[in-house]
Design a protein around this nucleic acid. Structure first.
Ligand SMILES: [Mn+2]
Ligand SMILES: [Mn+2]
Ligand SMILES: [Mn+2]
Ligand SMILES: [Mn+2]
Lengths: 159, 159
DNA sequence: GATAATTGTTAGCCAAGGCTAAACTGTTTG
DNA sequence: CAAACAGTTTAGCCTTGGCTAACAATTATC
C-alpha cells in the first residue's frame, strides 16, 4: 500500500512553511486540475464561436484560427470534435452554429470569464494583463470563489 | 490574408457585452495559456518533490504517484523527463534529488503557489476549495497580478 | 465567366501525458 | 536466507492538440 510515507522520517528537521495536506486531499487537487484541462479548450472554442456570432454575425474557421493563433487544420479537426460532442453544427465550407447545448456552454463560459476579468480589473490589474490571466484562470475557479469574486467586484464599484 | 472579419457584417445588431479584443491581443491570450500548460505539470512535479524532501526527508516515486493520484508508470516516465531537463537526479530504484536548477524552480513555484493560496483564503474562500483552485490558478497568474495579490493579503492581515 | 485568392478539409506526422501488464529490484519477515 | 511484498521500470497502447503539405471548394477580381 501507500502508508509508506509515514514510517521513515517522522518529522525531518528544519523545514519551513505549511505542512503537506493529507494524501487524499492532495490527490484531489491534482485531479481537479486534470479535469479542468479536459474541458478547457472546448469551452474556449465554444465561447469564441459564440462571441464571433454575437459580434460579427458569423463564426468562420479562419477567424477562429487567427484569434487562437493556431493553424486552420487544427481548427478544422477541433470543429469535427465539437460536432461529435453535439456542441456545434456545421456544413462543409460553411460557417458555424452552436447547438442548444453549445449556446448554453458559451453563455456559462462567457459569464465565468467575465467575472474573473472584471475581478482582476477591480483588484487593480492592468487590462491587457488581466485579459491574459483571466483566459487561463477562468477554468480553475470554483463556483464558491467565483461568487466571492463577483461580490468583491460589485463592492469596488459602489464604495 | 485574414482581414476578412472586418468586411462582412460591420456591426451586427443587438449584442450585449464587451467588444472583442483586436485579433493580435486575443491571440496572445491563448498563446500565453498554451505556454503555461507546457511548464505546468513539470512545475507541479518539481514543487512536490521539493515539498516531500522538506517535509518527509526524501521523495520516492510511489509517494508522488499517491499524492498526484496517478500510476507509478506515469511517474516513472515523467522522472525520466525531469532528468533529461536537468531538474532532478535519480539512480534506479532510489529516491529523488533536485538539481540546483530544480531547487530554484521548486522554490519559485512554491512561493507563487503560496501567494495564490493565501490570497484566496484572505478573500474568504474556504480552505479546501482554496487549495483546489490555487493548484490550477497558480500557473496562470502573472507577476503583476501576483504582486497585487500579495499586497492584498498583507492588508487583510493588518486592517 | 475564367482565373486568382482565400478558405476549408484531409492525410500523416509528432510530443505530452495518461493507462495496464509484465518484469525487475530492493526490503522485510518467517 | 528464502520467500513474499513493496516499489520501480519498461513496453506498448490510447487520446489530445499541435503542425505541414497537398488538395478541394468557395469567393473575389478582372
Ligand atoms: Mn474564456
Ligand atoms: Mn480560457
Ligand atoms: Mn503548485
Ligand atoms: Mn499546480
Amino acid at each position: 500500500m501507500s502508508d509508506h510515507e509515514q514510517r521513515h522520517t517522522p518529522t525531518p528537521p528544519g523545514h519551513s512553511g505549511d505542512a503537506l495536506p493529507p494524501v487524499e486531499q492532495h490527490a484531489q487537487q491534482y485531479e481537479a486540475v486534470r479535469n479542468a484541462h479536459e474541458t478547457e479548450l472546448i469551452e474556449d472554442y465554444v465561447e469564441l464561436i459564440g462571441d464571433l456570432i454575437r459580434h460579427r454575425g458569423e463564426a468562420r474557421a479562419a477567424d477562429i484560427a487567427n484569434r487562437m493563433a493556431v493553424s486552420q487544420a487544427t481548427v478544422s479537426k477541433m470543429i469535427r470534435r465539437l460536432n461529435e460532442l453535439g456542441l456545434v453544427t456545421s456544413k462543409p465550407y460553411r460557417s458555424l452554429f452552436l447547438t442548444e447545448e453549445g449556446q448554453k456552454m458559451a453563455q456559462t463560459s462567457r459569464a465565468r470569464h467575465d467575472v474573473v476579468l472584471h475581478f482582476l480589473r477591480a483588484l487593480g490589474v492592468d487590462d491587457s494583463t488581466a485579459r491574459i490571466d483571466a483566459e487561463g484562470m477562468e477554468h480553475h475557479v470554483s463556483d464558491e470563489t467565483l461568487t466571492i469574486m463577483q461580490r468583491f467586484t460589485e463592492q469596488q464599484r459602489t464604495p
